[in-house]
Amino acid sequence: MSKRDIQFDQNGLLRHFLTIDGLPRQTLTDILDTAENFSTVGTQQAKKVPLLRGKTLVNLFFEPSTRTRTTFELAAKRLSADVLNINIQASSTSKGESLLDMLRNLEAMHCDMFIVRHNTSGAAHFIAEHVAPHISVINAGDGRHAHPTQGMLDMFTIRRHKQDFTKLRVAIVGDILHSRVARSEIHALNILGVPEVRVIGPHTLIPREASSLGVHVYHDMKEGLRDVDVIIMLRLQRERMLGAMLPSEDEYFIQYGLTRKKLALAKPDAIVMHPGPINRGVEIESAVADGPQSVILEQVTNGLAVRMAVMSMVLGRKQEA
């Protein structure tokens, strides 16, 4: 069995959700459709459905995160699962326990799913390759590699506003090099049939072989934003920029910050997205972030539905089998 198949079980159903790269369009559409069904749960009086009652989910976060961890936790609780949060900075790998030993211990507690965030690319794949057969793994971000639930919630948001992916022009702006969100979005957009995906940023923040991912590369933001339907701004990781990547945040804002003036170059009904948290005045102007074209807070809400969808598909699978 090739490594690519690791995400599916022997019946061809999604067992792990590690990357969007290589998934069939149908799987992506299924996730979006399932998420659509869940999107009303949060507005009901009783905000819970009993789909994952009796299941135990472990949030295994090797990197600090508030937003992603909370939405996973909330999504799991809405599905009636039990949730365990493990913050590894304070835990045993810092005492020299290997990642694998730690997994074995958690498995021994009869958990059903690991939701993993780790600062090394490939960590979720590694864990998925080594867990017991009854356990599923969801990648909540590994190094620069992938953040597939974020990618899917962005697709969900786009579909709600734009319906047909095959008529869109989408621009992703900023630090593509270090961004797992960008990689997951690029794969999803290509698989869903978006004819033109653009990435915009300085040479220092765009991988040399970016075009091999199926994108058009722009270094001039004004050119890159022209006539796009969707603008996805990426967070500038200030701590990573120290040194030779960028001269200053000011200069970055002038070149690549999204202002009302630059936004006017896109289609009049273009939507503005951002995976958060926002650096106001660094990658985006407040007037745009809070403006009528911004769907940034919707993304957060949609994150819940999409994560519920993925969890229920991956764990619900066993009841069908």
Partner: peptide
Amino acid sequence: HEGAVATRLGIPGIP
């Protein structure tokens, strides 16, 4: 290697 594969996998590249 800083190439297509490292770009796809998000692995820091050696140019």
